[in-house]
Design a protein around this nucleic acid. Structure first.
Lengths: 213, 213
DNA sequence: AAGCGTTTCAAACTTACGTTTTAATTTGAT
DNA sequence: ATCAAATTAAAACGTAAGTTTGAAACGCTT
């Protein structure tokens, strides 16, 4: 009669991902999680140890594959004959995000939202655990961008990447600041292809813009 | 011996602003606030009624002047003889943000961070109270951008504004996604003038980019 | 079927939260 | 100086949080 549910730990991860996105870490209680996951309250501490550890599991389940996919895209570009252009590098990040957004079994677009939430909430997890582990992500992109935008200085390039990745993350996370002031039509209909269509020209133009005198 | 402190309500507002930014709404307790503000626990409920109402007071103390300043910039542009260019409109938003960032008595850059936090936390306050009240902010900017970027369609323009304001808010809020992966030099030294120097060319280039076929 | 490690369950524990209450204190006008 | 109002103070209230506990139920090998 009923589709066989995933096991307890997976159900907890799935529900937690959604709730952490909706209500944040502090705003999500273990009782909300275990109730919606239809598991016992103690199951979280049994399987993950603590609420903190649960959050880390939720986060890492998505981050590791996403980073790996981006690095694979960069590998693919380096292997090609022709030199990469800015658009290629931007797509090397966007494509994995898109794949994530389109696959509900991978949490759909939830993780990018979780990531942006985690970012502004400034978790210990980000400050301590991850920074070191995935620094290769930034270094690879930085190296690639440096080759494609050779006329930009070190500092200028760092800023461009900061701005470009910021805008890309926000686009996929659906963080619309204007919705503060008015019901926005842009974000409510969040079709991944639409995001790319409008995001790509914007971010590429910003990256290749001449530096300020 | 001691500089005369501001009154109780103001001390609560100042401390709350900082703590709400650092720990979020749910993550900030009234006991943290009252302890750091050196006031009695009951003072919050006495002066503001509830934690929710306190948050609204904290938020509105900054938002109202910021919006007013932006609208004044737009008024100034309309009063001028020459037609405005994209850069003028961008600066019409950036200038008040800069003023906010430079004046510690106005909370410095704290409010933009609070705003971005409140955004991802998706507060009732934003969904219900503010949307209606400050819709003029978006409409005025939309009208101005439409005149400056006449070749963009309705939908395209909405996306450009979404992306542009997103990136500007994030730049001032200091939300650096790359810091997830590596200790970023960009944001740690957050000089307002540096922000403008690097932000302005990027966002202007993105706004005026040719639309995707 | 028995035994054993793993998982689930209901219940309780400790702590911290937002809020309320009631009394003490300060303030300001007469 | 006095009195009423406004403010501060200390304590307690009820609720909900994360975590822990010990027994019951389950799954698997023998």
């Amino acid at each position: 009669m009923e589709a066989s549910k995933p096991d307890t730990a997976t159900r907890i991860l799935d529900v937690s991902e959604r709730l952490f996105v909706e209500h944040g870490f502090e705003g999500t209680s273990l009782r909300m999680i275990t109730q919606q996951a239809e598991v016992n309250l103690a199951a979280v501490n049994y399987h993950f140890g603590s609420k903190d550890a649960l959050f880390e599991s939720v986060f890492m389940r998505r981050l590791a594959p996403l980073v790996a996919a981006c690095l694979a895209e960069l590998d693919r570009l380096e292997a090609k004959q022709e030199a990469a252009v800015v658009e290629d590098l931007v797509m090397a990040f966007i494509r994995p995000c898109l794949a994530l957004s389109r696959d509900p079994s991978k949490g759909g677009a939830l993780f990018v939202r979780l990531l942006s939430r985690t970012l502004v909430e400034n978790h210990r997890l980000l400050r301590e655990t991850i920074s070191q582990q995935y620094s290769v992500f930034v270094h690879r992109f930085a190296k690639a961008f440096k080759e494609v935008l050779p006329w930009l200085g070190e500092e200028e390039l760092a800023w461009r990447m900061h701005l470009a990745f910021g805008i890309m993350f926000n686009a996929f996370a659906g963080n619309d600041v204007l919705k503060i002031f008015v019901r926005s039509q842009v974000v409510t209909a969040r079709d991944p292809d639409m995001i790319v269509k409008h995001l790509l020209p914007f971010v590429v133009a910003g990256l290749v813009a001449p530096a300020q005198g």
